[in-house]
Computed example of a mutant assay.
Amino acid sequence: MSPINNQDKKQSALARVLGSASAGICEIGVFHPVDTISKRLMSNSTKVSNLSQFNSVIFKLHANDPLGKRLVSLFPGLGYAAVYKILQRVYKYGGQPFANEFLSNNFKSSFNDTFGEKTGKALMSATAGSLIGIGEVVLLPLDVLKIKRQTNPESFKGRGFLQIIKDEGFALYRGWGWTAARNAPGSFALFGGNAFAKEYILGLKDYSQATWSQNFISSIFGASASLIVSAPLDVIKTRIQNKNFENPESGVQILKKMLQNEGITSFFKGLTPKLLTTGPKLVFSFALAQSLIPFFDKLF
């Protein structure tokens, strides 16, 4: 039985970094091809009505190549993806507990008085996740390069990483506002859904004492809520980032075109495959991080 209190055990910073980084490494190793497929579906603005068109969207210039080459084509930008994903997971999964502790130390009574002890605790976790999600824009250049590699490799024109950084500069932060707008509710829903599941469904008093299966169950709730809430802004963000460096479009321009040419349902393009693909990826890494952080804390 967990101790009867409403305060989670604090893990060390080293444990949070190691646990989150390990989760990121495992995630990129298993799910990068799936992520490429999801990004290419979201970036596609044409109607897909047959298998041949679907094949062209997924494999692009390699659509008619042998199966082996088509599968290899799903691994573009792996270097960018690995660096980005590991840093992102360390920042997000390792950083949210620090933000949560800050809120708990300074605003716990306000949350509890307003929402009650159990709901207040879950909402603090969600709010901490939202704050961390907004700050995630600092990693945006790596995300931009990863997505361009996955969806628009022609935009690189033979340039390496350092040359692109030199040439593009702050242009790599294009779409940062839309990214922050997408991350805030998405991260709120991720950590909030996870916390509410642990609080109300699993009845945990100390979230850090959750078993692997409990972390897995609660991560399903958090990941599903996050993907649904952030879907419209995620589509806009992806389309901003996959444009050629020379021909950028603003989020407002993209939004207007989507409404005019594709309709309201275009804001949820790729949601079903994303729930089926990105959903398991997010559940996997989130549950793994939540299990590995306490593990490393005990180990060291």
Rank of each mutant, 00 (worst) to 15 (best):
F245W: 04
Y80H: 13
K108A: 15
F216L: 14
D143Q: 15
P97H: 01
I4C: 13
S43P: 05
L282F: 10
S43M: 07
K148Y: 08
N105Q: 15
D65I: 03
R149S: 15
F216M: 06
K256L: 08
F59N: 01
P66M: 09
F267P: 09
I58K: 10
A63Y: 09
K157T: 03
N105I: 09
M258Y: 12
K298W: 02
W178L: 15
L259M: 15
D234S: 12
M42L: 08
S187A: 15
N100S: 14
P97C: 09
N112T: 14
I37S: 03
D234Q: 11
S2Y: 14
H62R: 05
D65C: 10
K85M: 10
V90H: 03
L299P: 05
L299A: 10
P280I: 01
A287F: 07
K9D: 15
Q11E: 14
T127K: 02
D35F: 14
N105R: 13
L142G: 02
A223F: 08
P185K: 02
R16W: 03
S218T: 02
V48Q: 09
K10G: 04
G77P: 08
T272H: 06
E168G: 06
R89V: 11
L139C: 01
G19F: 00
S104Y: 06
K39T: 07
A223E: 02
S52L: 00
Y173H: 01
G24D: 08
V138T: 00
M124P: 04
P141L: 08
L41P: 02
S73C: 03
F111S: 01
G251C: 12
P66D: 15
L67K: 00
I86W: 03
F196I: 03
V138R: 02
V57D: 05
F296Y: 14
G120L: 07
T265W: 11
I58G: 06
K121L: 10
T127A: 14
L78F: 14
F221C: 13
D65V: 10
C26Q: 06
I134D: 08
D113M: 10
T238P: 08
W212E: 12
K256C: 07
F188E: 13
I264P: 05
T119R: 13
F221S: 14
P97I: 04
F191L: 00
Y200G: 14
V48G: 02
S38D: 07
I254K: 09
L233T: 12
A99V: 01
F98P: 03
E101I: 04
Q290C: 07
M1Y: 07
F295Y: 08
S213W: 13
L276F: 12
T238H: 08
K281P: 05
F156C: 13
V34R: 05
A63W: 11
R16S: 10
C26N: 12
R70G: 07
